[in-house]
Design a protein around this nucleic acid. Structure first.
Lengths: 190, 190
DNA sequence: AGAGCCATGTAAGAGGTTACATGATTAG
DNA sequence: CTAATCATGTAACCTCTTACATGGCTCT
């Protein structure tokens, strides 16, 4: 697995971006539970969630403040930083490079792009379509150039079929734009 | 990742099944290098290869004999055992349960089924088609039952599209049967 | 009083990546 | 003589999964 993917960390950043007042671990955890839309594509157990929060703090993408309300156990309230916001925005604008990443990485990007700034989602779908079309064309070129091994030919056909399916799905997304109300839409992320 | 997947170990078993006289690590490694058909779907670095061989030996799926030929460095020659043969055959007959496993696990199964016993590949394609069609139907049922969240509806549509693409690819495989000569075809695995 | 929720973690271990260690032999 | 190939591993380091530890609060 390539270094620097970590859709989970960007998902956490995305949740914090939508919460001006910050959020704490247990609160964030609910979004990753079964039944929640985000939980349907990305499951995150408490252990890993708290681990990611520590990592994000180390990379200065979030800051935390300890607060005890009454006699409850103390909470770590996390807020996204300027640096975190920049990383998030860059990530949300970058299409995934491989068809297999559509299922997880791209869906997470789409989820937050739609919720944070619908225009971002429109552009993301466009650039992702461009990337996948290039990929499809390069696969098709390899196929028509002739593949010696019949097994490898099948593999190529599978990849083309999966990529085409993703392309058609994206085209359909483009035509039936999200009716999602941008409840958390802010004037614009920096 | 679920326990007990390890397509890499079954790939090693598959290679050993085709070599009556056994094989050693460095020899096996060549099959997993770039350029080789197997290497196109499953890359295995030396470190992991030797690690898997040790594991397979511990689980009595293979046995090893040390042999030094001349003054060369001593080789560990590995041979598949009866138990290993049974595990391999069971694995080759089991369809994968998720669409995302088509790209790796299923392709490895197909690769070895075709090479070891073409009839096995025919049956594997059939049962895999059955599994994927059931999956597609259950996804379609959930879709027509109505999904509240529009984002989740998109996710469902993507999964259906990817599953359909895999189904059509398998149907095409079925119609244009492998012309692969069963060079290593034996009377039949036990 | 007990169940379950709030809240944050640690521990153990499976599994993988990358790089390097070692040392002999063969090809140019 | 130098580089590549043969041959087998170890070491360090990530990531993720699963399970559990801790302790207070709230609801019935």
């Amino acid at each position: 697995m390539a270094v620097q993917e970590r859709p989970a960390e960007f998902a956490i950043l995305g949740l914090l971006e939508a919460e001006d007042s910050g959020s704490h671990g247990y609160d964030l955890a609910r979004h990753f539970a079964a039944g929640e839309p985000l939980g349907e594509i990305l499951r995150l157990e408490p252990g890993m969630l708290y681990h990611h929060l520590k990592r994000l703090e180390r990379s200065v993408s979030v800051t935390s403040t300890t607060s005890r309300s009454g006699s409850r156990p103390p909470r770590q309230t996390y807020r996204i930083t300027e640096h975190g916001r920049n990383r998030l925005r860059t990530w949300l604008q970058s299409p995934v490079q491989h068809t297999r990443e559509i299922r997880l990485d791209f869906l997470v990007k789409l989820y937050f792009a739609e919720r944070l700034e619908p225009q971002l989602a429109v552009r993301l779908i466009e650039t992702q379509l461009g990337t996948l079309r290039e990929l499809r064309d390069s696969l098709a070129a390899r196929e028509s150039a002739g593949v010696a091994d019949p097994f490898l030919a099948s593999v190529l056909e599978l990849r083309i079929a999966q990529t085409d399916a993703a392309i058609r799905w994206l085209e359909q997304l483009q035509q039936t734009p999200s009716t999602h109300e941008s409840r958390n839409h802010k004037a614009g992320m920096p």
